[in-house]
Design a binder for these strands. Structure first.
Length: 255
DNA sequence: ATGGTAGCCGCGCTA
């Protein structure tokens, strides 16, 4: 099974790129973040024509997540049952017996801000819910935009970013707590190029200078990690005209 | 030097 996660930064703008990428990459499951589209405007016809089922939880202008699946999803869960949240950031479904959780973790804006507190609270609630979820779903994948660079090697300039948003110790501790539930960072199961990132700021020639961070992840429970065969970042997608600021992350395991 | 770009909706907010 091949799973991908991609923060599209507007599904409306990125739809042509998404459709051609689906054809080329042929993932079984795609987790999308920052769709920024209300459910009534979701491009169901185009997605269906590409051979995918879709479930989605969107809102105007901000946030929004979607799951595209080759096989029909079941047991769809909107949001975190333990954490009522107006912001559409979490979507879970079961596909081919695997529980797939699509997450758009809050950015946090800056250390000490209200949004930072919300980010840590949101992550705490996610871990709390996943702990129970994993008990009944041993095959589980958590994929999305975590807005956390787990280690210094995931940051283009660790000194400049030390203690900053996306890199602070409380955020990294929250990421480690997710791993402590029994999840593994699929990207790090394999040798990877140095300076591998999944997001580059639109500003200051961030991509051209490879001034990026690895903040998009696919975490796998032990039974899936044991069968995982490859994980990589589709950096080339960031080179397209009018790109998302994120590149897709693609992970595959044997059935 | 607190800049810069993109997307949204509207002329600011979020990332």
């Amino acid at each position: 099974m091949k799973i991908a996660t991609w923060n599209v930064n507007s599904l409306k703008v990125r739809l042509p790129q998404l459709l051609s990428w689906l054809t080329e990459e042929a993932p079984d499951v795609v987790c999308l973040q920052e769709t920024k589209i209300e459910d009534k405007f979701f491009p169901c016809a185009e997605i269906t024509a590409s051979g995918y089922h879709a479930c989605f939880s969107g809102q105007k202008t901000y946030n929004g997540v979607a799951l595209l699946t080759r096989d029909a999803p079941s047991e769809v869960v909107f949001g975190n049952p333990l954490y009522p949240d107006e912001q559409k950031r979490l979507l879970t479904a079961t596909v081919r017996g695997i529980c797939v959780v699509c997450a758009y973790v809050p950015n946090g804006q800056s250390i000490g801000s209200d949004k930072y507190a919300y980010k840590l609270e949101w992550l705490d609630a996610l871990a709390g819910w996943l702990a129970g979820r994993l008990a009944g779903h041993r095959q589980l994948a958590l994929a999305g935009d975590f807005n956390i660079a787990p280690e210094d090697r995931d940051v283009h300039d660790p000194l400049a970013w030390a203690g900053q948003i996306l890199c602070s110790e409380p955020e990294r501790a929250a990421f480690q707590r997710l791993l402590s539930l029994g999840l593994q960072d699929s990207f790090r199961l394999f040798a990877q190029p140095e300076r591998s990132f999944s997001w580059w700021d639109y500003r200051m020639l961030g991509f051209q200078k490879n001034h990026g961070l690895r903040i998009d992840h696919v975490l796998l429970s032990a039974p899936l990690a044991a069968r995982c065969v490859v994980s990589g970042i589709r950096r080339d997608m960031r080179k397209l005209e009018r790109p998302s600021d994120h590149a897709p992350v693609v992970t595959e395991w044997t059935d």
